[in-house]
C-alpha cells in the first residue's frame, strides 16, 4: 500500500516496528509485543467490560494498548491521513499496569500537504500504581488540516509521566486539550513545543494535583510565524498538598502573528506550592545581528534562534 509505505517512511526516525498503524480508517498493522495487548479500540470495548466504563459510546476507530508486562522496546503508533477530506474520529486508550515502565512514540500525520483532513482524537491514558510512561507525541500535518486531540491522563499513586508534545508541521487549525489527574506521590512533566506557521492554535492544558506530594511541571514553548494566532490557556490546580510549576514562553517571529498566554495557578490546599513564569517576546535584534556577523543569513539566524528557544 502506497499510504502505508509513506506512513512508515514518516516514522523513519524510529528503528522499532510500528505496533499500531492506522491509515485513514483502515488498521493496516498491529504488532503485539509479549505482555502487551494491542487492539482497535472498538474491539477492546467489546472484549473488556472495564473499557466500557471509560467511554459510554462504542469507539469507532483508534487504538487500545494495554501494557501488562514489562517490555524492552518502546511502543509506537502511527495514525495517518492519506486521502483527501478524511475525517478521523479516534478513541485511543493506553493502560500501563502496576510498576511497569513503558515508552510510547506516537505519530499523527498527513502524508500530503493539501489533504484538508480532520483528525479528532479522544484519549484516555491510565498509569496504574508505580507505573511509568514516557510519551512522545509528534504531529506532522498539512497546511489545510484540522486537528483536535483531547487527551486525559490518570496517574495513580507513585506513577510517573513524561509527556512531550511537538508539532513539527502545524495544521491550519489545532485545538489541543490535555488534562492530567495526579494522585499521591505521582509526578508529571509535560513539555509542549508548538510551532505556528499560518496556523490558528488553541491549547488548553491542565494538571490537577489530587494527591499529597503529587508533582506537576508544565512547560510550553510557543513560536508564532507567518500570521499565526496562538492561544494557550494553561493551568495547574492543587487540590492536595502537591507541588507544581508552570512555565510558558512565547516567541513572535513576524509582525502579523499573535500569542495569547493565560497561565493560571490555583491552590485549594494551604500546604500546596505552585509557581509560574511566563514571557512573550520577539526575536532579539542583538542576537540576530550577532549571528549575522558570524556569517549566517538573516533567515538562518532566525531559524537558529527559534530552535534554541524551543530547546531552552
Amino acid at each position: 500500500m502506497k499510504g502505508a509505505k509513506n506512513a512508515n517512511r514518516a516514522y523513519e526516525k524510529s528503528s522499532a516496528p510500528v505496533n499500531f498503524l492506522q491509515i485513514d480508517h483502515r488498521v493496516e498493522n498491529i504488532s503485539q509485543p509479549k505482555g502487551t495487548i494491542i487492539l482497535p479500540s472498538s474491539k477492546a470495548w467489546e472484549n473488556f467490560p472495564w473499557v466500557k466504563s471509560l467511554f459510554k459510546i462504542k469507539p469507532k476507530e483508534g487504538y487500545f494498548i494495554w501494557v501488562k508486562e514489562q517490555g524492552d522496546m518502546p511502543l509506537s503508533t502511527c495514525l495517518t491521513i492519506s486521502s483527501p477530506k478524511t475525517v478521523q474520529n479516534l478513541t485511543n486508550i493506553l493502560v500501563v499496569e502496576k510498576n511497569i515502565k513503558a515508552k510510547a512514540n506516537v505519530l499523527c500525520n498527513s502524508i500530503k500537504n493539501n489533504l484538508c483532513g480532520t483528525h479528532k482524537a479522544k484519549g484516555k491514558l491510565i498509569l496504574r500504581e508505580g507505573a511509568s510512561l514516557e510519551y512522545s507525541h509528534i504531529h506532522k500535518w498539512g497546511e489545510k488540516d484540522f486537528v483536535n486531540p483531547d487527551y486525559e491522563f490518570f496517574l495513580e499513586k507513585d506513577a510517573k509521566l513524561v509527556y512531550n508534545y511537538q508539532n513539527l508541521l502545524p495544521p491550519e487549525k489545532l485545538d489541543l486539550i490535555t488534562s492530567v489527574h495526579s494522585k499521591e506521590n505521582s509526578s508529571v512533566q509535560m513539555n509542549f513545543v508548538i510551532n505556528g506557521v499560518n496556523s490558528k492554535i488553541n491549547l488548553k492544558e491542565k494538571i490537577f494535583l489530587e494527591g499529597d506530594n503529587a508533582q506537576g511541571i508544565m512547560k510550553l514553548r510557543l513560536v508564532g510565524k507567518k500570521n499565526s494566532q496562538i492561544k494557550a490557556e494553561s493551568s495547574v490546580v492543587a487540590l492536595a498538598a502537591g507541588k507544581g510549576h508552570l512555565d510558558c514562553q512565547g516567541l513572535l517571529v513576524d509582525e502579523k502573528s499573535t500569542i495569547f498566554l493565560s497561565p493560571e495557578i490555583i491552590c485549594k490546599n494551604r500546604l500546596a506550592q505552585i509557581t509560574h513564569e511566563a514571557s512573550l517576546g520577539k526575536i532579539s535584534e542583538e542576537e540576530l545581528n550577532y549571528l549575522r556577523m558570524r556569517g549566517l543569513k538573516e533567515s538562518e539566524a532566525i531559524d537558529l534562534i527559534v530552535s534554541g528557544f524551543l530547546q531552552a
Binding site: 532579539s284 542583538e286 542576537e287 550577532y290 549571528l291 556577523m293 537558529l304 534562534i305 530552535s307 534554541g308 528557544f309 524551543l310 530547546q311 531552552a312
Partner: peptide, 11 residues
Amino acid sequence: SWQSPPAIKGI
C-alpha cells in the same frame, strides 16, 4: 569579536 556578546539560549 564583541565586547559583550549576547547569549543564544538553547544553542
